[in-house]
Design a protein around this nucleic acid. Structure first.
Lengths: 202, 202
DNA sequence: CATAAAACTGTATAAATTTACAGTATTCGA
DNA sequence: TCGAATACTGTAAATTTATACAGTTTTATG
């Protein structure tokens, strides 16, 4: 979406608050008053600009016919299922669905990942759970990380000492993975900041 | 709130849908068209009636100045923390806070309960987790139930054979609880239908 | 530096919208 | 059965609102 000038962003923000508070979008005159414009056309042209840039939609010939575009209102989080080899984790192929409103519960999260397997059982992470993941470059010891190793995405607890990294499962049936960061390619997809479990198997 | 006639309810419902779909309340003329009235005053007087009965608020002299009263729109779920003895689980005293939008993730749930203790660890339920609970009267074997026993609220897996009930923890460090339904008072608060875990200890 | 876009003033008017007034027929509770 | 409330028709302003047109000044941007 095309970038907004400072003034335009200011006006868009005001529009949001106005609708929030009044349940009705404002008129040109009201926008004019709020910003102390001397002309209704100042309001009009700002609205036209915001429409052109895709932030709202004007319904011609209707009083207060201003529709704020969805994307600005609430986003939700994309849900990543089975991760295809070689694909970026948030690519179309991996997108299983989309949970609206999930971003409200986990404001820091960037996406949700469906857990496969029981290797983190003792950390309270079961097969089928959805992990809220925040993208990041660095992981601190003790955090649970989502990493890609040999084109496989895995969730493990991070334990690093210099170049030596252990990816620790939380289940005695699984063995820790040892990684030499100097030799092996490993990419960090993010850290786990939350969990959602839904439905039947409970 | 004063009762609505069939026609009035019909109109209120239409108003709700209209706002939902258009982000703007309708004009008298639009309401008139939708119901095939021959006069805008039919719309006007219906709106006045609905206002008098408290279902909406008309902003005089403003185009589309119709505010629908915030009906108890089940937005979000109440979060129950420590449950006080003798109090109904959803009473004011027990309400810790309120998670807006959580109802979207767990449509069947009636409230959230903060878990205390590790007795359900092996079911992936850890101390501090939030359980989405659906109120119900009956629990089936194998479901995880929220029950009140001797004025204490506890979360356990349900295993019943006739009058004999076992409340099974999912952690070898805890002992099962045996209940004789004929003798002991036990009230079912609901069954677990989901789980939310947030933040740091991950 | 030229040119476009941004950010306005100022005026005017057509169209949209609210809202008052004057009725009629029907239903419903007391 | 009587009055009030419901559910409308029909008309006509008064007011609100959108929006076109004609400008000016400032700020980015290639």
């Amino acid at each position: 979406m095309e970038k907004l000038s400072r003034r335009q962003a200011e006006i868009l923000q005001w529009l949001h608050r106005y609708v929030q508070e009044n349940d009705v979008p404002p008129t040109r005159a009201e926008l004019m008053q709020a910003f102390a414009f001397q002309s209704p056309n100042a309001a009009e042209s700002h609205l036209r600009t915001l429409e052109r840039k895709g932030y709202l939609q004007l319904q011609r010939g209707r009083a207060r016919g201003i529709r704020l575009t969805e994307t600005v209102q609430q986003e939700g989080l994309p849900l990543v299922g089975r991760v295809a080899a070689g694909q970026p984790i948030l690519s179309e192929e991996n997108l299983e669905s989309y949970l609206p409103t999930a971003d409200r519960l986990f404001p820091e999260a960037d996406f949700l990942l469906r857990v496969q397997g029981m290797s983190m059982r003792d950390a309270g992470i079961l097969d089928g759970d959805l992990l809220a993941v925040q993208r990041c470059l660095e992981v601190h010891n003790g955090q649970i990380a989502v990493v890609r190793l040999d084109d496989e995405v895995t969730v493990k607890r991070w334990q690093q000492e210099g170049e030596r990294l252990w990816l620790l499962p939380e289940n005695p049936d699984f063995a820790p993975i040892e990684v030499d960061l100097g030799r092996q390619a490993l990419s960090v997809e993010g850290v786990v900041v939350g969990l959602i479990r839904r439905g039947g198997k409970l």
